[in-house]
Simulated scan of single mutants.
Amino acid sequence: MVAAVLAGPAVIAPTHTDAAEAAVYSSCTISRCADARTARSGWASRGFPTTRGWVSWSGGLCNFAGGQYYNYEGELPANATYYEYDVYPRSCGASRDAYRIIVNKSTGATWFSPNHYSDFYRL
């Protein structure tokens, strides 16, 4: 009986305001950072589209603009608007992989996530 009285509150599922679980790094030195930088240049030349959808890419391929990245978990600096873009082009409509860049269009700050938002590397 005493144990039931001393028990704490139930664990509540994390909310969007809880601390992030993702690792955020101040620089990018992993092997695919060069690819992420190249993708950033490609997206910059296309004006960083802000709507979701396939965009024509060089070599007859397409790349996917994911639209706004909402930073719900707070991994990236707050009070900014971010957009997400795939790193690797492919055939239009093909399955997407986990490689993304996230861009703050106001400042140009860019992060690379090689694993669909489990880690963020500043480019």
Rank of each mutant, 00 (worst) to 15 (best):
A78N: 09
G67I: 12
Y70T: 15
F64M: 04
S41F: 06
N63E: 05
W57Y: 11
R46P: 03
S56C: 00
A80S: 12
P77Y: 11
T38W: 05
Q68C: 01
N71Q: 08
A78V: 09
G60E: 05
R37P: 04
N63W: 01
T50I: 09
G47Y: 15
Y69F: 15
C62I: 09
G42I: 08
V55L: 06
G59C: 09
A78L: 06
A39H: 02
Y70E: 14
S58F: 04
G74F: 10
G66I: 03
W43E: 05
Y69H: 10
T38L: 09
D35E: 15
W54I: 08
R37Q: 12
A39F: 04
R37I: 01
Y70S: 15
R52S: 12
R40F: 08
T51N: 09
A36H: 00
V55T: 03
L61A: 15
T51E: 11
L61M: 15
F48K: 00
G74Y: 11
R52W: 11
G47N: 10
Y70A: 12
G66S: 08
Y69C: 12
C62D: 14
F64T: 06
A65H: 08
W54K: 02
E73Q: 15
E75F: 08
G47I: 06
A44Q: 07
G42E: 03
A65C: 04
A36P: 01
R46E: 04
D35Q: 00
A44G: 06
R52N: 00
T50C: 09
S45E: 10
D35S: 14
Y69P: 10
F48Q: 03
G59V: 07
L76V: 00
R52Y: 00
L61S: 15
F48N: 01
N79E: 04
R37W: 03
Y72P: 00
Y70L: 14
A44M: 06
E75K: 14
W54S: 07
G42A: 07
F64Q: 07
P77L: 08
G60W: 04
D35R: 03
R52D: 01
S45Q: 14
G59M: 14
T50V: 12
G53F: 00
Y72E: 09
F48P: 05
A80F: 09
C62M: 11
G53T: 03
Q68K: 13
E73Y: 15
S56R: 11
S58E: 05
N71S: 13
G67F: 06
C62G: 14
S45Y: 10
E75S: 15
P49L: 10
